[in-house]
């Protein structure tokens, strides 16, 4: 287990290192940051002075090393638009995105796993067809459209839930559903197929033949096995949600990291953009690592040699 963990950890570090290069070059190779920072209508002299102050005149590899060093010290640079340190700006926006992501994945898991289990317990019945139909239909609706639909139904027609801002828990209900529903079809399908396999497995037959109650067999002996691939999928989906939160936060005017990214792109606030890119990539890498560790806990064949 230790060797496995160390190898996985090294891999994660390597992946994040390479992504940091990608994040940096993506932002720096794509235009003149000095001109963007100086703003429209700045004189060439102003642009030049910005270039000097921020070190944009030095070669890119050198800039990258400087940036990385500072990142290790917790300094992500300054947002020239918001006139604040990037770390501070991110700290202000992150709680909303983390809350949203957690609620969204909770919604997705609580909806899709029971549905997947039910569909597997009663294959080819109405429940199963309904679940699969929901999955196929759900996958076809773009998240922004679904978000607008939710707003129209619950915010405009029924007027039961707020449709923008982040003042109370109620503000998170619609965004979490809009963000979470997109992950449900995949999780539901994988749960269903995993449960179908697990229910036919020999050890489940053993559990039944020894008189264990049905719910116990289903949850303890079948679901646990079906969950092994699902855990990895949930980690991946949570990673996607970090990216997908851009759309949802924009629609619901939630001032989270996604909204910040969208605004920063339009303001050419490059220090913020590269920090967000790096953080999301690192979060994704850590999530997959966490999924592997969790799978080790579920399945002793991974954990114990």
């Amino acid at each position: 287990m230790l060797r496995f963990l160390v190898r996985r950890l090294l891999m994660t570090v390597l992946v994040v290192a390479v992504t940091s290069v990608v994040a940096f070059s993506l932002v720096h190779l794509s235009g003149d940051p000095a001109a963007a920072m100086a703003g429209e209508g700045a004189s060439p002299a102003d642009v030049e002075s910005v270039r000097k102050t921020y070190g944009f005149d030095r070669p890119l590899p050198e800039q990258y090393v400087t940036w990385l060093k500072r990142v290790f010290e917790g300094d992500f640079g300054r947002s020239h638009y918001l006139r604040a340190s990037v770390a501070q700006v991110l700290a202000d926006h992150a709680p909303i995105t983390i809350t949203l992501g957690a609620l969204a994945i909770a919604f997705a898991v609580l909806l899709s796993i029971p549905l997947g289990v039910l569909a597997a317990l009663y294959p080819n019945t109405l429940v199963d067809r309904l679940a699969v139909g929901l999955a196929v239909g759900g996958q076809a609706v773009p998240s922004f459209l679904f978000a607008l639909l939710l707003i129209y139904i619950f915010g405009v027609t029924l007027r039961v839930l707020p449709i923008s801002g982040s003042g109370s828990w109620a503000h998170f209900v619609l965004p979490a559903i809009a963000l979470g529903y997109y992950a449900t079809p995949a999780i539901m399908r994988l749960t269903r197929s995993g449960m179908l396999d697990a229910l036919q497995s020999d050890h489940v037959r053993t559990a039944r033949a020894y008189g264990l109650p049905a719910w116990r067999v289903i949850i303890k002996h079948a679901l646990r096995h079906a969950m092994i691939p699902v855990v990895s999928l949930i980690a991946v989906q949570l990673g996607f949600m970090l990216g997908g939160s851009i759309v949802i936060e924009t629609v619901f005017a939630l001032k989270g990291v996604g909204y910040l990214a969208w605004q920063s792109i339009q303001r050419s606030d490059i220090e913020v953009i590269q920090a967000i890119l790096l953080l999301i990539a690192a979060a994704y890498a850590l999530l997959t690592l966490a999924a592997d560790v969790l799978n080790g806990a579920i399945d002793p064949r991974i954990r114990v040699g």
């Binding site: 990608v22 993506l26 851009i246 759309v247 990214a261 953009i273 999301i280």
Partner: peptide, 23 residues
């Protein structure tokens, strides 16, 4: 395989937005 992992680590929407914003 490593290249695939790197690609999966990058958030699609965000990267696309950055590039489109520039070009």
């Amino acid at each position: 395989n490593f290249l695939i992992t790197i690609r999966l680590t990058l958030p699609v929407v965000l990267v696309a937005l950055v590039v489109v914003a520039v070009y």
